[in-house]
């Protein structure tokens, strides 16, 4: 009797489980490499009740083994988006410009870069006086974007200069002529090779560097807005669930939630009085 009762209970628990498994869409998650951070993302995604995750590294699964949805991570895997095997494709943590240039069908993205507006907002909260912001750009998209943004920030004077790739002298000139250098996520201007010279030059001329991401702050930039892994995953899951429920793809977007990162040592070196990360974030959100 007791055994019978256990059996019935077992069935009651397992059958709905089995049904839900069958109804859930299968998601193929392609990671660029195996790192602890990426593994954490994969694990967290697999906990979702809305879909089942299959994780691959660097390549798509065989065609007969492919799932319903595709998630690629980072710009490196963007070419994999060019496939018709999936009903919907999610580009996670990719550069907004790179993604927009490709025009993939049945696809949406969560960008790795922060919106310029958010960086400018951070700037206006750090510096209370009127300052000149030097912004070298390579892609014309940034010029247009910045021109538009300049109207929103009255206390900021914009120095927007077109710059060839790896032209440190041009960047140096901008540094000399401005109070703050706003670094865009353009890797043709800002990369491992140039960053040292740019940072050295900025210290020499007492010019602070803002953005474009957390790595720059570690290397010696003064501050940047950034989105944490958890925040990214949460947003991605929301986007996924939205699609599974509504069957319509959400718009590509910048991450909605963010944090502020400050390099205290750099602030001290440059003699800049700066509030704490939490304080700044709060001020920005209140604004």
């Amino acid at each position: 009797m007791k055994k019978l009762l256990y059996g019935i209970l077992f069935l009651f628990i397992l059958i709905p489980q089995a049904f839900s498994q069958i109804n859930k869409p299968v998601v193929d998650l392609i990671l660029p490499t195996e790192t602890a951070e990426l593994e954490y993302i994969s694990k967290k995604l697999s906990k979702s009740n809305s879909f089942n995750i299959k994780t691959y590294i660097n390549v798509l699964p065989r065609e007969d083994n492919r799932g319903d949805l595709l998630i690629i991570v980072s710009d490196k895997l963007l070419p994999l988006m060019d496939t018709d095997s999936y009903s919907a494709k999610f580009a996670f943590y990719v550069n907004s410009l790179n993604f927009k240039n490709k025009n993939f069908k049945k696809s949406t993205a969560l960008f790795s870069d922060q919106p310029i507006h958010r960086q400018l907002l951070l700037l206006s909260h750090i510096f209370d006086k009127k300052i000149i912001i030097g912004i070298p750009y390579h892609n014309e998209f940034y010029k247009i974007l910045l021109m538009n943004e300049s109207k929103n920030f009255n206390n900021l004077e914009f120095l927007i200069v077109k710059t060839e790739s790896n032209d440190i002298r041009a960047v140096n000139k901008i540094i000399q002529n401005s109070d703050v250098l706003l670094a865009t996520p353009e890797s043709k201007i800002y990369n491992s090779q140039t960053i040292r010279s740019i940072l050295l030059s900025s210290y020499r001329h007492q010019t602070a560097v803002i953005g474009p991401n957390e790595g720059f702050v570690t290397a010696g930039a003064l501050a940047s807005v950034a989105t944490s892994s958890d925040q990214y995953i949460d947003e991605l899951m929301i986007m996924m669930e939205e699609y599974i429920e509504t069957n319509s793809l959400p718009e590509s977007k910048y991450p909605k939630n963010f944090i502020v990162k400050i390099n205290k040592n750099v602030a001290e070196s440059l003699g800049i009085m700066i509030s704490s990360e939490q304080q700044l974030l709060k001020e920005m959100k209140d604004d």
Partner: peptide, 22 residues
């Protein structure tokens, strides 16, 4: 030598560009 600083992506762990000293 023009020295470089490794710039690692916080999520993917990738370098933003190749580290070559010139």
């Amino acid at each position: 030598i023009q020295h470089s600083i490794p710039l690692e992506d916080s999520i993917t762990g990738e370098n933003i560009s190749d580290i070559t000293e010139k």
